[in-house]
Nucleic acid binder design. Structure first.
Length: 146
DNA sequence: TCCATGCGCGGCC
DNA sequence: GGCCGCGCAGTGG
């Protein structure tokens, strides 16, 4: 069974150098995708980075688009987002209310690193239009009290 | 710039 | 339900 909540032995604020390190520490389950989880159980973790142009980070609140519709070359949205597998995991999390671990990709003087920022909950989903004019599925994450 | 890599999903018994 | 293959993906060398 998938593990929700704080990973054992990992403190909030802990840094990791690579995605593989996150994987081994049990913080985030996949190497490349930002959303870790399944449509059935929901998402157990996400990685927030600047890869998607429609991200918004307010600290306690995050707006996080679902998967897809994005050009890997340019990083911009080039098509309407569909409700694909990774995105469906977030939808399940919205329904279950289970906590989602949030990891932020941050720049340090030794290069990019991943920082575990604790637990959030998916509180809303809105279908809207992103910066490039395509439909996106935008999830709202709110930080849980620590 | 390309592709390895790991995982979820869906198709198939 | 279990196995297998496909395709995806907020990497990374």
């Amino acid at each position: 069974m998938r593990h929700f909540g704080h990973p054992e032995g990992v403190a909030v604020g802990a840094h990791f150098r690579t995605r593989l390190d996150l994987l081994r520490a049990g913080v985030h389950g996949v190497l490349q995708a930002g959303i870790s989880g399944s449509a059935a159980d929901g998402a157990d973790a996400i990685i927030y980075s600047d890869a998607y142009e429609d991200n918004v980070d307010l600290g306690h609140t995050i707006y996080y688009p679902g998967h897809g519709g994005r050009s890997r070359a340019s990083g911009k949205q080039v098509a309407h987002q569909q409700l694909t597998a990774g995105t469906r995991a977030l939808l399940t999390s919205l329904q279950t209310g289970l906590p989602v671990r949030v990891i932020r990709r941050v720049e340090t003087d030794t290069g990019p690193q991943y920082r575990y920022d604790g637990l959030y909950r998916v509180t809303d989903l809105q279908e809207t239009v992103g910066l490039s004019g395509y439909g996106i599925l935008l999830f709202t994450f709110r930080q849980l009290p620590s």
